[in-house]
Design a binder for these strands. Sequence first.
RNA 1: GUGGGUGUAGCUCAGUUGGCUAGAGCACCAGGUUGUGGUCCUGGGGGUCGCGGGUUCGAGUCCCGUCACUCACCCCA
Length: 434
Amino acid sequence: MKIQAPPGMRDFYPADMRLQNWLFDAWRRVSRSFGFSEYDGPIFEFLDLFTIKSGDEIVSQLFDFEDRGGRRFAIRPEMTPTLARMVAARANSLPRPIKWFSIPRMCRAEKPQRGRLREFYQWNADILGVDDVLADAEIIAVAVAFLREVGLTPEDVVVKLSSRPIATAVLASIGIEASQADRAFQLIDRYDKLGPNEFRRQWNEAYGPDVPGERLERYLTEASLEQCLDLVAAAGEQGVAARTQFESLLAHLESFGVMPFCKFDLRIVRGLGYYTGPVFEVFGRRSELRAVLGGGRYDDLTTMLDGPRVPGVGFGMGDAPMMELLKELGKLPELEEELDIFIIDADPQLFATVQELAAALRGHGLATDFSYKRVGVSKQFKQASARGARYALVVGSEYVERRELTVKNLERGEQIIVPADDLLRAPQEALQRV
RNA sequence: GUGGGUGUAGCUCAGUUGGCUAGAGCACCAGGUUGUGGUCCUGGGGGUCGCGGGUUCGAGUCCCGUCACUCACCCCA
């Protein structure tokens, strides 16, 4: 019987792993450049941690199980609850701002599709303990820095940006109170997918003919940022504050130099969940794929876990959708195996020397390998190339006679002869000569 | 979870209206080549044609089921 990988789960062969690590390296490099510290949590949590916040829909996507004591656990479907738990537990001793990132592996029991798997990695970056929209702006700047890092431009991707308070105020202006807004958010989120006719039908079904859905529709499709902000400011004191906040956010984004990537879009509302302030998603401009990144401000998460109030803002970026987008745009690098030195013997008698040299060079931290078979020099060179070695080292008669080695730079095709002692004393330096 | 499409070697694909021992390129292995690769020749291994059943003298080809992938819905990274 043949057993394959479970549905929606991946094997990472070395070539896949190189790409995966390339992505992870970029995530880590960018995170650290903004002063973020890496953290991680357990691969599964008590089931309650996820049900408290999320509700039935997420729960139906959980891989959950019982231990022998009957306790209910679930493999994490997202990182934010774990983050909230960890931060709440030490809320009083962590220096602010808390700037943390993680690359957790997570599972959801969804039906797999392109760019959506049942097991995936997700880059999470969050700033906690800060109310200021400066944090919101910086978290968006982190996301944009990554997009730039992998060679994407404003022609390739867009950060669509909105804000829960703004959306709430727009809804209030047509008579929908905050307590009834969830269904409206859902419909707004799906406006593009539904199309005008289906949107109107479902809108009337939800709110009846008295609520002027057409006016909302005009705001969704035609209104400028200024018009939306004016409408928000007209909604009273809170509205004025929301407007000031959003303008401040935009000013910070300008200062960080990321505005070319950003675009206000009232249709971004981020489903249900815990968002309380600005929200944003990243899309490929010409792509049919869904968002590769989603995030926003969540100020009440730790209090939902009975912890002290710790406001936060952050995002998640999935490895699968990001890789799909990069593939679509031809931005994936060609990565070869990385080997510094391949040692070749010109005479099978000298193989013991090959092994000794390999041991010494490996001791210097150089990735070194050699052929397992005593075949001709030509074949060994062929293997050296196939392995992606930067240098070939030939052990031959010059070693027997004068303790010298031939070093060939396989990228440039040039070679020199160096004393073996030089190479063993300072190999990096000796290699640089050719 | 619900519907549509696809399924031939590790990968990309041929395979005529069902008809001899199922093919190609790339990749892999070995040799030509006992001191020079990435860009040469030659040969080899590898497929129960996703799996199971049915129709037929005969099925990679037709039918049913199933599994996987994929697209749409749901939801989302």
